[in-house]
Each structure stands twice: as structure tokens, then as C-alpha cells.
Write a protein that binds this DNA or RNA. Sequence first.
DNA 1: TCTTGAATTAACCGTATTGTTTAACTGGGT
DNA 2: ACCCAGTTAAACAATACGGTTAATTCAAGA
Lengths: 202, 202
Amino acid sequence: MTKEEEILKAAEEEFFMNGYDATSTATIAKRAGVTHAMVNYYFRTKEKLFMQILDNHVYDLLRALKPIMQVDGNVAHVAADAAVVIFDKMNEDRRFPYLLSDISRTHPDFLLRYRETFDTVCRSSLGMHVQRLEKGIADGNVQPCTMHDIYSTVATLATAPFMNLPILENVAQLSPDMIDRHLQERREEMVRIIRARYSTGK
Amino acid sequence: MTKEEEILKAAEEEFFMNGYDATSTATIAKRAGVTHAMVNYYFRTKEKLFMQILDNHVYDLLRALKPIMQVDGNVAHVAADAAVVIFDKMNEDRRFPYLLSDISRTHPDFLLRYRETFDTVCRSSLGMHVQRLEKGIADGNVQPCTMHDIYSTVATLATAPFMNLPILENVAQLSPDMIDRHLQERREEMVRIIRARYSTGK
DNA sequence: TCTTGAATTAACCGTATTGTTTAACTGGGT
DNA sequence: ACCCAGTTAAACAATACGGTTAATTCAAGA
């Protein structure tokens, strides 16, 4: 692994663990086993380094999300499938929800840069979703609700379990094994919840 | 309002907004309109000041939680009621969930001090809850599930909407009015979700 | 009036860290 | 011999940190 990759990896770990402001370039360098100056040599600034990492994860997520947004079928079942996809994606980098929360609070401009991309990916299918939802409700396949209800519920159930991890790890002091089991349970429960609330079971 | 109260109020706002580490005693003093030294004069250390604030909110929450934990009745309905109580409590200090998340990550020892108190309040009724859950399932009044499922779902649905606020405010750029409306919708949806998942409707 | 002691202030303590830059040096390719 | 990306140690200026000190204000009690 080149030094550049080493820095990138170390930076990712630090940012995901401590957020943007609480992470210093010196700490990153130390973790990567390189001198402090190398960070600036390769990435010029802390922000550029961070944005490169954030880019990877955001586009990775959007890429995973895209096909799901276009699937045709019972809205309730699609919602459950989407929730699973998001959940599994978050499970790959369990601190990603925290990082998003952190920078949305301290550096929202970092996220605003993605609005355009996000809109073209998601808003494009919004119309179709609403249409299918209305049809689903009319046909008696979907429980009465708004598209907003479904979006928010899916987003919440798929990310919140990871936001709660520090409490379970450090306060409830669950072992890594128990953490894994808990997440597995929450994944299954998430699907049951979405089915129970939005599907009529027909 | 005395200077001491002024400091407490300012400190609360700062801690709730930025977390523990990212808040400085100097900033608190400036916001309170007093000199830096006053903070140490009244509260000796930053940590003591913080713990006093945290104490108030934690005990306030536990006090609100206690009666709900002892209510007898259909577990699914009690869960929905408890969720509403927690949600409304969080709505009084919308950044409280964030603060808990922040210190669970950076200073879990601050929270571990409450474990004893928490256990006597909550664990005492756990046995009863499990018993009532099993009876509810046997009688066909409650959907098959574990007590853990219900606890986690209630905690998640009642707190996650507030964790997401920075994204809605700063990235989605919802107006305060829209934020209020969104939270109101999530409150109602939370109840519908819990009913749909855990109650048989009988 | 004098004394006491809490309230309050400005200034400063030493230490640490921040992101970034500079200038020198290395070693392999041309 | 030259070059240049890679790499280093050192230092940059700024600033912030939590906490302390000594002096001053001021009102209440003796």
C-alpha cells in the first residue's frame, strides 16, 4: 500500500470515529505512519482530503440506492427492500450515519454540494413513487399513508441502529458479539415493522 | 436572573448545540455576558458545570419515564404511550438525544454514573413487562415479538427524529414551521407504527 | 464607621494544538 | 551531471484551552 493510500485509510478511520473538527491532520499522519507534512503534500488541505473520502462514500451510497428507487412493485415491499439495502450499506461503515450527522451540524456546506446529484437521482423517481403509492392504497395493497411517511420511516429505521452504537458499546457495554446480534435483530425487526405498517398483507 | 443562572442557561445552550468537547468555558461566559473567571468561580470546573446540567435532564427524563414503566395493560398500547411520553420529553429539548449520543462516544463515564439509578428505575419493571408480553401474545392481543424488540423500537422512534434535525434544518433547509410539522407527523406515525407492528388490534 | 466576605474583574498562567509552509535532503531515473 | 517526485524535520503564526491569581467592588452586619 502506497503512503497516499495509507493516509487515506487512516484519515477515513479518524474522520469516521471522531468527526471532522475533532480530527487533526497530525493524528491522521501518526496513524498512517507518515510525517505530518505528507498529508498536505498529497492532499493540499484537510478539507480536500475529507471531501475525497466523503465523495467515495456518498457516491457509493447513491449508486446502491439508484436501482432500488426504480423498481416497480408494491410500494410497501419496495420500501422494505430499500431499507435492507440501506441498512446493509451502513453496516459496511457503521460510523457513516454518525459522520453525516456530524457534518450536517458543523459543516452543512460539505453536504449541500451533493444536493444537485441527490435530486437528480431521487427526485426523478419521486413522482412515480407517489403514483404507485396512490394506486396501492386504492387497490387495497398498501395501508393509507404519505410518501413522506415511508421515506422518513425507512431512513430512520435503516440508520438509527448505527447511531445508537456508542451507547450500546460504551454505556450498556455490550460485547462485539452482542452488538452484531443486536444489529441482526434490528435488521429483521425493521422489515417486520415496515411490512406491518405499510402493507395490507394481500 | 442571577449570574449563576445566566451561566447555567448559556452553558446548557452551548453544550446542547455543540457537545461537550467542542464547547469552551470561554464561549459559555461570553454567551452568558459574564467574565471567563465567573464560570470557574461558581462551578469550579467545566465537568462539574456540565454534570449539573446533565443531572437535571437525566433525572427529569427518568421521572417522566417511571410512571409509564409501571402501567398495567396491553403491552403494545403501553409501548405506544411510553413512546409518546419520551417523544414529548425530547421535544422539550430537541438536542438532548444528540448530547447523549455525543458523550456516549466521547465521555461514556459521564453516563455510566447513572447506570445504578437507571437500573433501579427500569430493570425493576422488566420482569413484569416480560410476563405481560408473554401473556399478551398467548391471549392473541400482542403480535409475537421480544421485549427487546419493543424497547429498541420505542427508543429509536422516539429519539431518531430529533437526531435527524440538523440534516433537515441545514441540508434540506426546512423552515422552522416545516420542522414543527414534520415532527408532529413523525409523532403520529410513530404511534401508528407501534400499533401496527405490536398490537393485534383486538 | 469599620469589618467581613461574597461577588466580580482583568490579566495571566503554562501548555497544547491547529493547519500549513519551508528548506533541505534522498535516491532512482535520464 | 541533472532532475524531480518523494520525504523529512523543523518551524510557522495563531489561537485556543481550562484554570488561577490578586486586586477591586460592594453591600450587609457589628
